[in-house]
Design a protein around this nucleic acid. Structure first.
Length: 351
DNA sequence: GCTGATT
DNA sequence: AATCAGCAACGCGAC
DNA sequence: GTCGCG
């Protein structure tokens, strides 16, 4: 078969001679580098006309990996295009380690009465009085949080304006002692099969250490209760079929050795799971990395995804997370799963 | 990392 | 002027 | 009810 004749005269468009388009946010990254070298404190223009005060950027946050506070900030600037949509409009639970990952850890939900200009907070009705909370979605806020010692970014499953309606449900696969990442990947694939049987789609990401998170996109106006019920239905099915590999038993001592804990109980109001693309406060500066299901089949090593390597991956791999969550699952399917009698299985107790 | 209270 | 404590939260199942 | 768990 005659190959299509290539154009004989290939007009060479001088793309290579055009000034290379600067990487997005290159100015912010170099500003952070300068501030780190100079030491001390300085303001960085994290968005047009939005300057954020940062300091001690040379403080080592990850002694093993040799990653500084400045490195963490620059990582987030590099992946901003991807992580900001993942936390946009979501209240954030702060997990703070101002002295680095080996230092003391504390949690914080409430934001102080006044925060620097450009940092987003909003009122969130917890129980009783509304509380002021940090809300994700913009770079100035994100850099301020790292400045405060937040390494991970942990958003609610629901957003400002619909705080009672999560838009995804998380199944957290957590390998117990003696369980390999490969086994986690196998369990993840079983969860996918169980969800498929139920008529649901989901997307995986590494948890940032040895686990996998599976996010099930939820239709509008799903309640937290139904979110939990949905995750439980899939988990129960997997444990039913593979009791030697998977368990829903929370008590550590009751878990068979070498099993993967299938945790569905993160899906309630006010709880949070590390965002896709977030750095985790573990010694090796790993990152919660969105995966394709094909990659789960390949059982990649999660340690491949670190503060240093993620930006390149993200650049090639595109916005896996946003794409994956686009597919809305059916409201009637969720309702059927969550309604007692509709699909008996998970919550046999309760009345 | 920072605030507000205590010495 | 230095020191120091606080900085979240909730459902679940086993006892 | 309280405890341990995440």
């Amino acid at each position: 078969m005659p190959a299509r004749r290539p154009r004989t005269v290939r007009t060479r468009v001088p793309t290579r001679r055009l000034p290379r388009r600067p990487a997005p946010n290159a100015a912010i990254i170099s500003a952070l580098e300068r501030i780190e070298s100079a030491g001390g404190a300085a303001a960085v223009e994290a968005a047009p006309h939005k300057s954020i005060e940062v300091s001690h950027l040379d403080k080592v946050f990850f002694p093993d990996a040799g990653v500084t506070k400045g490195d963490v900030m620059r990582y987030y600037v590099r992946v901003a295009k991807y992580i900001l949509p993942a936390i946009a409009d979501r209240p954030l639970v702060l997990k703070r380690t101002p002295e680095g990952v080996n230092g003391e850890l504390f949690f914080q939900q409430n934001a102080p009465d006044d925060v620097p200009d450009g940092v987003r907070v909003d009122n969130v009705a917890a129980q009783g009085e509304p509380q002021c909370r940090f809300v994700g979605g913009d770079l100035p806020t994100l850099l301020h949080l790292v400045q405060l010692g937040c390494i991970s970014l942990d958003p609610w499953m629901s957003r400002i304006g619909s705080l009672d309606h999560p838009d995804y449900s998380i199944i957290d696969l957590d390998p117990g002692p003696g369980a390999s990442f490969k086994l986690v990947a196998r369990v993840a694939l079983w969860v996918r099969e169980a969800l498929d049987e139920l008529g649901l789609r989901a997307v995986p990401k590494t948890s940032g250490s040895r686990g996998i998170h599976i996010a099930i996109p939820l239709p509008r106006s799903t309640s937290y209760q139904d979110s939990i019920a949905t995750a439980k239905a899939a988990a129960a099915r997997v444990v039913d079929l593979h009791p030697r590999q998977a368990t829903v038993e929370r008590a550590l001592e009751n878990r068979p050795r070498g099993t993967v804990y299938v945790d569905c109980l993160q899906n309630s109001r006010g709880k949070s799971v590390a965002a896709a693309y977030a750095v985790r406060a573990k010694p090796d500066a790993t990152v919660s990395a969105p995966l394709t299901w094909d990659e789960v089949v390949e059982s990649l090593d999660p340690r491949e995804f670190t503060v240093r390597t993620m930006p390149a991956r993200v650049e090639q791999h595109g916005d896996l997370w946003r794409e994956g969550l686009k597919h809305g699952n059916s409201a009637s399917v969720i309702r059927a799963i969550a309604t007692p009698g509709g699909k008996p299985r998970a919550s046999a107790g309760k009345k």
